[in-house]
Nucleic acid binder design. Structure first.
Lengths: 240, 240
DNA sequence: TCCCCAGCTTGGACTAGACCAATTTTTGTG
DNA sequence: CACAAAAATTGGTCTAGTCCAAGCTGGGGA
């Protein structure tokens, strides 16, 4: 009935030992090298790497080639609201920034067209950004918006907020959204854009932004780092 | 500027080849054994296992010792609402069930007491369940509820729904919730309860359930499988 | 003194196995 | 033919290395 410790892999025992060892250490503290740990615990470097790899995936440790493995700072709690990214962050005393990778026009593929309820091939605006919190890359985001939205790049540049630009410059007010959340593992592009490891767990979030009359106008695909952040969202019950 | 395929690990190339190979195969189809793949692609079994391991973590493949590695059925989209688990599932044509592991009384530790705004040591009701969808284990859930809630086990048994029992039998109506979502890797207990692999990505969700006057009455910790499901939630903007 | 470069350290990717456990298949026997 | 035992198959864990790439360090030269 109780927790029998049968069949627990050796790497997991080592993982939990390292986790305990590191619990009260200051962020940035270097831990022993993989070769030293393998020697100390009479195991192979492969097993040590499996233990450390999971702790890195959980955001407990970080590591860099040539430098070493170190204690990572604690996770942030990121309040995900319907307001802008920058307002969200500022409300929690976090310093946020965005790097705009692309603002352009494109056409709707079949899936996007169906979600935004426009004809396939319809003109869309595309905004691709990297979101940062306290200097760390947090998310990679590609937003597709219905309508031509002339001079979007300038309006975005001025306000720094997509939602603000949509409301003030185009009269489009997003008041509700449907978010889907799922897990995903980092591939080469995620590694490049977010500075994480291959195979790191990510949160893949799709958002369909809706106006007051329930028209979908925004279809955004976001990839959030799963190791550094947690999300907080408030839900209201529909009836009662 | 374009996607240079530099530094892409061999296991990743193999992973994407297997993913493509499997894309149109029927769920349950066995793929070649690890040893056969290692031979065919002139690589080691370790590398094959890394590729397959990530595809299993993503829910593309499944595997069982002695049996083989097979194509997994597609993910479900699970609509997470404020209503009960069973209603959520039924609304999507899914068959849901719950296994109650424990209904008991306990006392509030410091953290729980702060969240539920009761004194530390206050009496709480505890409900621990495994949630299933279409026969697959989906989540492990431990709910802590403020108040004595006499005969909760009987009421739960009768209605099958915690929220229904709270509303009909105790006059407690949860109309809003704060959910936090973060990633986590499966440990031995998760493996035992959910039938997944060590290190599989999970979604750790905490919910604070609130009544109409914003009193917290429910504090629930849920661990959802990240390989088989995605969540859909609707958010309404606070103002405008 | 300052800077560059060679060498060292450290993590990253991979190999070729060994041994085990769960399952399936085959074989032998009543 | 039925069924239990034995053998083969397959994934699960681990070892003990090799070679590479990125970062750090210390010595030599301008």
């Amino acid at each position: 009935m109780s927790a029998e410790p049968r069949n627990v892999p050796k790497y997991y025992l080592l993982k939990e030992q390292i986790r305990a060892f590191v619990r009260d250490a200051a962020p940035g503290t270097l831990i022993p090298t993989e070769r030293a740990l393998a020697d100390e615990y009479s195991t192979s470097r492969t097993t040590v790497r499996q233990a450390i790899g999971e702790l890195v995936a959980e955001g407990v440790l970080g590591r860099a080639q040539g430098r070493g493995t170190f204690v990572a700072p604690p996770r942030f709690t990121y309040v995900r609201q319907l307001t802008s990214f920058s307002d969200d962050a500022a409300a929690q005393g976090l310093v946020s920034s965005s790097t705009v990778l692309d603002v352009s026009r494109t056409t709707a593929d079949e899936d996007t067209a169906a979600r935004l309820r426009v004809p396939a091939g319809a003109e869309l605006a595309r905004v691709e950004r990297i979101r940062h919190i306290n200097g760390e890359p947090l998310a990679h985001e590609v937003a597709l918006l219905a309508g031509p939205l002339p001079d979007l790049a300038e309006h975005l540049d001025r306000t720094g907020s997509l939602y603000t630009a949509l409301r003030d410059d185009y009269g489009i007010d997003i008041v509700a959204a449907e978010d889907t959340v799922e897990t995903r593992l980092a591939g080469p592009e995620d590694v490049r854009l977010l500075g994480i490891e291959m195979g790191a767990p990510l949160l893949l979030i799709h958002r369909l932004g809706l106006t007051a009359d329930d028209s979908p106008v925004e279809w955004t695909r976001s990839v959030f780092r799963g190791d550094r952040f947690r999300f907080l969202a408030r839900m209201e019950g529909p009836q009662h």
